[in-house]
Protein backbone atom coordinates (compact mmCIF):
# COMPACT_ATOMS: atom_id res chain seq x y z
CA UNK A 1 0.00 0.00 0.00
CA UNK A 2 2.75 2.38 0.97
CA UNK A 3 4.79 1.92 -2.17
CA UNK A 4 1.76 2.22 -4.42
CA UNK A 5 1.25 5.74 -3.17
CA UNK A 6 4.87 6.58 -3.24
CA UNK A 7 5.73 8.14 -6.62
CA UNK A 8 2.69 10.34 -6.54
CA UNK A 9 3.41 12.07 -3.31
CA UNK A 10 6.97 12.68 -4.26
CA UNK A 11 5.96 14.39 -7.47
CA UNK A 12 3.38 16.25 -5.51
CA UNK A 13 6.04 17.71 -3.32
CA UNK A 14 8.45 18.63 -6.04
CA UNK A 15 6.19 20.00 -8.77
CA UNK A 16 3.14 22.28 -8.79
CA UNK A 17 0.17 20.57 -10.39
CA UNK A 18 -3.07 21.62 -11.99
CA UNK A 19 -6.43 20.82 -10.42
CA UNK A 20 -7.38 17.83 -12.51
CA UNK A 21 -3.96 16.31 -12.32
CA UNK A 22 -3.98 16.75 -8.57
CA UNK A 23 -7.00 14.51 -8.29
CA UNK A 24 -5.45 11.85 -10.46
CA UNK A 25 -2.40 11.91 -8.29
CA UNK A 26 -4.45 11.58 -5.21
CA UNK A 27 -6.13 8.51 -6.61
CA UNK A 28 -3.93 5.94 -4.86
CA UNK A 29 -4.49 7.67 -1.55
CA UNK A 30 -8.22 7.76 -2.15
CA UNK A 31 -8.09 4.14 -3.18
CA UNK A 32 -6.42 3.23 0.09
CA UNK A 33 -8.98 5.28 1.98
CA UNK A 34 -11.79 3.47 0.22
CA UNK A 35 -10.21 0.10 0.86
CA UNK A 36 -9.75 0.77 4.58
CA UNK A 37 -13.25 2.08 4.97
CA UNK A 38 -14.81 -0.84 3.11
CA UNK A 39 -12.82 -3.46 4.96
CA UNK A 40 -13.33 -2.06 8.43
CA UNK A 41 -16.58 -0.17 8.23
CA UNK A 42 -18.73 -2.20 5.86
CA UNK A 43 -19.28 -5.12 8.25
CA UNK A 44 -20.45 -2.76 10.96
CA UNK A 45 -22.66 -0.78 8.60
CA UNK A 46 -24.19 -3.99 7.26
CA UNK A 47 -25.09 -5.07 10.75
CA UNK A 48 -26.61 -1.66 11.44
CA UNK A 49 -28.72 -1.85 8.30
CA UNK A 50 -29.75 -5.45 8.95
CA UNK A 51 -30.89 -4.55 12.44
CA UNK A 52 -33.61 -2.20 11.20
CA UNK A 53 -34.93 -4.44 8.45
CA UNK A 54 -38.17 -6.34 8.59
CA UNK A 55 -38.03 -10.07 7.90
CA UNK A 56 -39.25 -9.52 4.34
CA UNK A 57 -36.64 -6.84 3.69
CA UNK A 58 -33.97 -9.10 5.08
CA UNK A 59 -34.83 -11.85 2.65
CA UNK A 60 -34.48 -9.42 -0.25
CA UNK A 61 -30.71 -9.64 0.19
CA UNK A 62 -27.94 -8.36 2.44
CA UNK A 63 -27.40 -5.13 0.51
CA UNK A 64 -31.04 -4.19 -0.01
CA UNK A 65 -32.08 -1.06 1.82
CA UNK A 66 -34.94 -1.42 4.27
CA UNK A 67 -38.28 -0.33 2.82
CA UNK A 68 -39.21 1.01 6.24
CA UNK A 69 -37.25 1.19 9.46
CA UNK A 70 -38.42 -1.27 12.05
CA UNK A 71 -37.27 -1.25 15.61
CA UNK A 72 -39.20 -4.33 16.57
CA UNK A 73 -36.05 -6.51 16.63
CA UNK A 74 -34.52 -4.10 19.15
CA UNK A 75 -37.53 -4.29 21.39
CA UNK A 76 -37.74 -8.09 21.24
CA UNK A 77 -34.06 -8.64 21.88
CA UNK A 78 -33.84 -5.98 24.58
CA UNK A 79 -36.59 -7.66 26.55
CA UNK A 80 -35.71 -11.27 25.84
CA UNK A 81 -32.08 -10.95 26.82
CA UNK A 82 -32.53 -8.46 29.65
CA UNK A 83 -30.01 -6.10 28.12
CA UNK A 84 -30.43 -3.43 30.80
CA UNK A 85 -29.07 -5.75 33.51
CA UNK A 86 -26.33 -7.09 31.26
CA UNK A 87 -25.14 -3.59 30.43
CA UNK A 88 -25.14 -2.36 33.99
CA UNK A 89 -23.18 -5.44 35.01
CA UNK A 90 -20.60 -5.01 32.28
CA UNK A 91 -20.18 -1.36 33.21
CA UNK A 92 -19.69 -2.30 36.86
CA UNK A 93 -17.08 -4.94 36.04
CA UNK A 94 -15.20 -2.70 33.65
CA UNK A 95 -15.20 0.47 35.76
CA UNK A 96 -14.39 -1.12 39.09
CA UNK A 97 -12.17 -3.91 37.81
CA UNK A 98 -9.91 -1.53 35.94
CA UNK A 99 -9.99 1.02 38.78
CA UNK A 100 -8.76 -1.64 41.16
CA UNK A 101 -6.14 -2.82 38.69
CA UNK A 102 -4.78 0.71 38.30
CA UNK A 103 -4.76 1.35 42.04
CA UNK A 104 -2.88 -1.89 42.64
CA UNK A 105 -0.42 -1.10 39.87
CA UNK A 106 0.46 2.48 40.81
CA UNK A 107 3.00 1.90 43.55
CA UNK A 108 4.68 -1.11 41.93
CA UNK A 109 5.02 0.92 38.76
CA UNK A 110 6.52 3.75 40.76
CA UNK A 111 8.90 1.38 42.50
CA UNK A 112 10.05 -0.16 39.25
CA UNK A 113 10.47 3.20 37.58
CA UNK A 114 12.25 4.95 40.41
CA UNK A 115 13.60 2.58 43.02
CA UNK A 116 16.28 -0.01 42.80
CA UNK A 117 14.25 -2.73 44.34
CA UNK A 118 15.71 -6.18 44.76
CA UNK A 119 14.80 -8.78 42.14
CA UNK A 120 13.73 -6.42 39.36
CA UNK A 121 14.23 -9.06 36.69
CA UNK A 122 12.17 -11.62 38.55
CA UNK A 123 9.38 -9.12 38.94
CA UNK A 124 9.42 -8.42 35.23
CA UNK A 125 9.32 -12.10 34.45
CA UNK A 126 6.33 -12.50 36.76
CA UNK A 127 4.59 -9.53 35.20
CA UNK A 128 5.05 -10.99 31.76
CA UNK A 129 3.69 -14.30 32.97
CA UNK A 130 0.63 -12.49 34.20
CA UNK A 131 0.29 -10.80 30.82
CA UNK A 132 0.57 -13.89 28.75
CA UNK A 133 -1.42 -16.39 30.75
CA UNK A 134 -4.41 -17.65 28.78
CA UNK A 135 -7.53 -17.52 30.93
CA UNK A 136 -8.70 -21.03 30.05
CA UNK A 137 -5.64 -22.56 31.68
CA UNK A 138 -6.40 -21.29 35.17
CA UNK A 139 -10.15 -21.69 35.31
CA UNK A 140 -10.30 -24.71 37.59
CA UNK A 141 -7.88 -23.48 40.28
CA UNK A 142 -9.30 -19.96 40.16
CA UNK A 143 -12.76 -21.41 40.52
CA UNK A 144 -11.49 -23.22 43.59
CA UNK A 145 -9.89 -20.09 45.04
CA UNK A 146 -13.06 -18.10 44.55
CA UNK A 147 -15.10 -20.86 46.13
CA UNK A 148 -12.91 -20.89 49.21
CA UNK A 149 -13.21 -17.12 49.49
CA UNK A 150 -17.00 -17.40 49.02
CA UNK A 151 -16.68 -15.15 45.99
CA UNK A 152 -18.20 -17.47 43.40
CA UNK A 153 -21.14 -16.00 41.55
CA UNK A 154 -20.53 -12.57 43.07
CA UNK A 155 -19.77 -9.35 41.30
CA UNK A 156 -16.99 -8.63 43.77
CA UNK A 157 -15.26 -11.92 42.95
CA UNK A 158 -15.22 -11.20 39.25
CA UNK A 159 -14.02 -7.63 39.86
CA UNK A 160 -11.07 -8.90 41.90
CA UNK A 161 -10.15 -11.50 39.30
CA UNK A 162 -10.28 -8.90 36.54
CA UNK A 163 -8.16 -6.58 38.63
CA UNK A 164 -5.57 -9.26 39.34
CA UNK A 165 -5.29 -10.08 35.65
CA UNK A 166 -5.29 -6.44 34.61
CA UNK A 167 -2.59 -5.46 37.07
CA UNK A 168 0.51 -6.73 35.18
CA UNK A 169 -0.20 -4.75 32.03
CA UNK A 170 -1.06 -1.72 34.14
CA UNK A 171 2.27 -1.93 35.94
CA UNK A 172 4.12 -2.05 32.64
CA UNK A 173 2.14 0.82 31.11
CA UNK A 174 2.36 3.06 34.16
CA UNK A 175 6.01 2.31 34.65
CA UNK A 176 6.59 3.41 31.08
CA UNK A 177 4.92 6.74 31.77
CA UNK A 178 6.67 7.24 35.09
CA UNK A 179 10.08 6.56 33.59
CA UNK A 180 9.41 9.46 31.27
CA UNK A 181 9.01 11.90 34.17
CA UNK A 182 12.29 13.78 34.71
CA UNK A 183 14.22 12.37 37.65
CA UNK A 184 15.32 15.84 38.73
CA UNK A 185 11.83 16.55 40.00
CA UNK A 186 11.78 13.89 42.67
CA UNK A 187 15.45 14.36 43.46
CA UNK A 188 14.66 17.96 44.32
CA UNK A 189 11.75 16.86 46.46
CA UNK A 190 13.92 14.26 48.13
CA UNK A 191 16.53 16.85 49.01
CA UNK A 192 13.78 18.94 50.61
CA UNK A 193 13.11 15.99 52.86
CA UNK A 194 9.99 14.58 51.23
CA UNK A 195 9.15 10.97 51.98
CA UNK A 196 8.60 8.30 49.35
CA UNK A 197 4.89 8.60 49.78
CA UNK A 198 5.01 12.37 49.38
CA UNK A 199 7.13 12.15 46.25
CA UNK A 200 4.84 9.51 44.86
CA UNK A 201 1.64 11.34 45.58
CA UNK A 202 2.69 14.93 44.96
CA UNK A 203 5.21 14.63 42.17
CA UNK A 204 4.72 11.41 40.28
CA UNK A 205 0.98 10.82 40.41
CA UNK A 206 -0.15 14.14 38.92
CA UNK A 207 2.35 13.86 36.12
CA UNK A 208 1.41 10.26 35.41
CA UNK A 209 -2.27 11.10 35.10
CA UNK A 210 -2.36 10.82 31.30
CA UNK A 211 -0.80 7.39 31.66
CA UNK A 212 -3.35 6.43 34.27
CA UNK A 213 -6.16 7.43 31.95
CA UNK A 214 -4.70 5.47 29.04
CA UNK A 215 -4.05 2.41 31.19
CA UNK A 216 -7.46 2.61 32.77
CA UNK A 217 -9.20 2.84 29.42
CA UNK A 218 -7.25 -0.07 27.94
CA UNK A 219 -8.11 -2.19 30.93
CA UNK A 220 -11.72 -1.08 30.73
CA UNK A 221 -11.89 -2.29 27.16
CA UNK A 222 -10.17 -5.57 28.04
CA UNK A 223 -12.65 -6.34 30.82
CA UNK A 224 -15.52 -5.26 28.62
CA UNK A 225 -14.47 -7.85 26.06
CA UNK A 226 -13.69 -10.61 28.53
CA UNK A 227 -15.90 -13.63 28.28
CA UNK A 228 -14.70 -16.85 29.82
CA UNK A 229 -14.22 -15.69 33.43
CA UNK A 230 -17.77 -14.43 33.47
CA UNK A 231 -19.02 -17.61 31.88
CA UNK A 232 -17.38 -19.91 34.40
CA UNK A 233 -17.45 -17.96 37.66
CA UNK A 234 -21.00 -16.67 37.53
CA UNK A 235 -24.25 -18.59 37.80
CA UNK A 236 -26.95 -16.00 38.30
CA UNK A 237 -28.29 -14.22 35.30
CA UNK A 238 -28.42 -11.07 37.39
CA UNK A 239 -24.61 -11.16 37.50
CA UNK A 240 -23.87 -11.98 33.85
CA UNK A 241 -21.87 -9.49 31.81
CA UNK A 242 -22.89 -8.62 28.27
CA UNK A 243 -20.54 -11.08 26.61
CA UNK A 244 -22.10 -14.03 28.42
CA UNK A 245 -25.69 -12.87 28.09
CA UNK A 246 -25.17 -12.15 24.41
CA UNK A 247 -24.39 -15.78 23.65
CA UNK A 248 -28.12 -16.36 23.51
CA UNK A 249 -28.17 -14.36 20.29
CA UNK A 250 -26.41 -17.31 18.72
CA UNK A 251 -29.10 -19.74 19.78
CA UNK A 252 -31.38 -21.35 17.32
CA UNK A 253 -34.38 -19.18 16.79
CA UNK A 254 -32.75 -15.76 16.79
CA UNK A 255 -30.52 -16.73 13.94
CA UNK A 256 -33.23 -17.61 11.44
CA UNK A 257 -33.58 -14.03 10.25
CA UNK A 258 -30.63 -11.95 11.16
CA UNK A 259 -32.31 -8.72 12.22
CA UNK A 260 -32.55 -9.84 15.84
CA UNK A 261 -28.91 -10.83 16.39
CA UNK A 262 -27.93 -7.70 14.48
CA UNK A 263 -30.03 -5.55 16.78
CA UNK A 264 -28.51 -7.28 19.79
CA UNK A 265 -25.04 -6.60 18.43
CA UNK A 266 -25.78 -2.93 17.95
CA UNK A 267 -27.20 -2.61 21.46
CA UNK A 268 -24.21 -4.35 22.97
CA UNK A 269 -21.84 -1.83 21.38
CA UNK A 270 -23.56 1.33 22.63
CA UNK A 271 -21.76 1.72 25.97
CA UNK A 272 -18.34 0.99 24.55
CA UNK A 273 -18.95 3.44 21.73
CA UNK A 274 -19.50 6.13 24.33
CA UNK A 275 -16.29 5.24 26.14
CA UNK A 276 -14.54 5.12 22.80
CA UNK A 277 -15.72 8.59 21.81
CA UNK A 278 -14.65 10.01 25.16
CA UNK A 279 -11.17 8.58 25.21
CA UNK A 280 -10.12 7.64 21.74
CA UNK A 281 -8.11 10.81 21.20
CA UNK A 282 -5.86 9.85 24.07
CA UNK A 283 -5.72 6.23 22.93
CA UNK A 284 -4.96 6.84 19.31
CA UNK A 285 -2.39 9.55 19.78
CA UNK A 286 1.17 9.37 20.97
CA UNK A 287 0.08 8.74 24.54
CA UNK A 288 0.73 5.10 23.87
CA UNK A 289 4.36 5.75 23.20
CA UNK A 290 5.28 5.99 26.85
CA UNK A 291 3.92 2.56 27.47
CA UNK A 292 5.39 1.05 24.37
CA UNK A 293 8.95 2.24 24.57
CA UNK A 294 9.34 0.94 28.09
Amino acid sequence: MADAANPVTRTNVSRPTTGALKWVMRAPGLFCLGLFLILWMAPILLVLITSVKSNADFLAGPFSLPSALTFAPYKTVWEALGFSTLMINSVIYATLGSALAVILALVPAYALARKNIPGQKIIFALLLTGLMIPQQTVLIPLYDTLRQLSLLDTKLGLIIVHAAYGMPSQVLILRGFMTGIPKELDKAAYLEGASDFQIFSKVILPLALPGIIVGYTLNFIAIWKEFIFGLVFLNSESNFPLTVGMLKLNSDRYMSVFNMPAAGLVISQIPIVIVFILTYRKLSSGQFAGAVKG
Binding site: L104, L126, T129, G130, I133, T137, V138, P141, L142, T145, I160, V161, A163, A164, Y165, M167, P168
Partner: peptide
Protein backbone atom coordinates in the same frame (compact mmCIF):
# COMPACT_ATOMS: atom_id res chain seq x y z
CA UNK B 1 -2.80 -10.73 44.98
CA UNK B 2 -0.62 -11.98 42.18
CA UNK B 3 0.26 -15.18 44.00
CA UNK B 4 -3.32 -15.84 45.03
CA UNK B 5 -4.95 -15.28 41.66
CA UNK B 6 -2.17 -15.89 39.15
CA UNK B 7 0.72 -17.77 40.71
CA UNK B 8 -1.18 -20.38 42.64
CA UNK B 9 -3.58 -21.17 39.79
CA UNK B 10 -0.69 -21.78 37.42
Amino acid sequence: IFLLFVGYPI
